[in-house]
């Protein structure tokens, strides 16, 4: 049986691991694909887009949105597992 404090510490460590993975992707799609490796990726083409240019003006933004929703799901699951999930509020709908 874990103590309350240990539980909080492992929960926090899990959270930090998620952050590290998600922020690495965040960095790679924007600063990596959109800026540092842009010229290399521009040698590839998807439809009318050069790939590096697409990442800079479209792809990175789509990825950002997905990253946040992935984090929301991961953390909701983690909260539940550790018993930190909150009461559903009255105005859950809308």
């Amino acid at each position: 049986m874990k103590t309350k404090k240990q539980k909080a510490v492992t929960y926090w460590k899990k959270n930090l691991r998620y952050l590290l993975i998600l922020l690495t992707i965040w960095f790679l799609v924007s600063y990596g694909a959109g800026i540092l490796f842009k010229d290399f990726l521009d040698t590839f083409q998807i439809g009318g887009f050069k790939l590096g240019f697409w990442f800079a003006q479209q792809g990175s933004i789509y990825t950002f949105v997905i990253l946040i929703f992935v984090y929301v799901r991961l953390m909701n699951r983690l909260d539940k597992k550790y018993g930190y999930d909150e009461e559903p509020s009255k105005n859950e709908t809308l």
Binding site: W26, A56, Q57, I61, F64, Y71
Partner: peptide, 24 residues
Amino acid sequence: GYDGSVYLMGWTGGYVLLALLLAP
């Protein structure tokens, strides 16, 4: 042109930081 990407990435990527590092 491409240089305008700084605004597109800069003004959206900040929300990832907000959601993961600050808001909760």
